[in-house]
Design a binder for these strands. Structure first.
Lengths: 180, 180
DNA sequence: CCTAAGTAAGTATCTATTTACTTATAGGCT
DNA sequence: AGCCTATAAGTAAATAGATACTTACTTAGG
């Protein structure tokens, strides 16, 4: 790398880390691979992020921030929102993957960017009913948007006529019916 | 171990493997820990299961079989079924955990016990509607039953008045509304 | 010319898998 | 019944390759 640019190097490392950790998780992710892929150096990773866990947490926060920015909550149009979440997970499966890894491998880190979630809860408050609280509603909406990414591929391929659109429509329909 | 009993040793290893892999996954799970915890020996693991992946797959199949036996599908009473699935995941979180690890680390293995799922799909066929196919319905029901296990703990603890019962009721209510 | 950015080559530890060995036990033989 | 032995069950220790993290050094640029 001819020029020296700390910010750019840091950004390349972070981007490579998101990809690597989304693919292999914290324990399976390899520092050397990240360094190579970022066209940087192992030493730089430790300079910028301290250690492997620090890098993982930074990658996780980055991914969650992206999701919160790209798909902001729409408390008055929840069916439309679940559709956008569904699309997002198809478009960027690495974000859900890194969140799942975090939930399994570092649950304490997974709760870190909590304000993001709590803000959403507040805005959902008025949609809550005696049967389903605001938090539960948020939990369910996320689960429905992610459902197809969590299903074993073999099961999904059993549905010959299924497509992105039919699944998206099913997710939207579910949330519509929940709110009635 | 005074007595020699191949079956018993194999069973102890498998039980220890389920616990270890549910906690740390395929890549994070340690063969030595499994051998120690099973009060057996590294060599025996290789004798019975070939290699680490063979042991992981055996542990996964064992966990899925247990779930299929303990919570058989009830195609005509889906809301009741989702309630039982919800209870099961609270009671045995390790089953969902090992399935998630498999989905992330060895997706090809995760689809292996496919007949189990496909049988359920057939029985759900009559509940399907133009908006939601049988496969999609199954995918959604699983997702709702698991939803609270996938949510970050910080989000869940934000709901002060929530309990096992209120969440279970919310899951059942959701499926009830979906089917109308 | 001093500081921050970058590089290359270790090191110490860990970990899956193997090798070489010991011991219990079932079942045939006398 | 009691002995003998082939085989399966079990153990301990080595090996070979990774891998997170460090140390000691070089170079660009304000």
């Amino acid at each position: 790398m001819g020029q020296r640019d700390a910010e750019a190097t840091r950004a390349r490392i972070l981007a490579a880390a998101v990809i690597e950790f989304a693919a292999h998780g914290h324990s399976g992710g390899r520092i050397d691979r990240i360094a190579r892929e970022a066209e940087s150096n192992v030493r730089m990773i430790y300079a910028y992020f301290g250690n492997k866990s620090g890098l993982f947490d930074a990658a996780l926060s980055d991914a969650i921030r992206r999701m919160a920015e790209e798909v902001p909550p729409r408390p008055t149009e929840l069916p439309a929102w679940v559709g956008e979440l569904f699309d997002f997970h198809q478009r960027r499966p690495e974000v859900l993957r890194i969140c799942l890894w975090a939930q399994l491998e570092r649950p304490e880190a997974a709760s870190e960017p909590l304000e993001t979630y709590l803000a959403k809860v507040e805005s959902l408050q008025e949609q809550a009913s005696p049967a389903i609280s605001a938090v539960d509603l948020l939990v369910i909406i996320y689960a429905v948007a992610q459902a197809w990414q969590l299903a074993p591929v073999g099961l999904l391929s059993a549905d010959g006529r299924a497509s992105h659109e039919t699944r998206r429509a099913a997710a939207v329909e579910v949330v519509t019916r929940i709110l009635i």
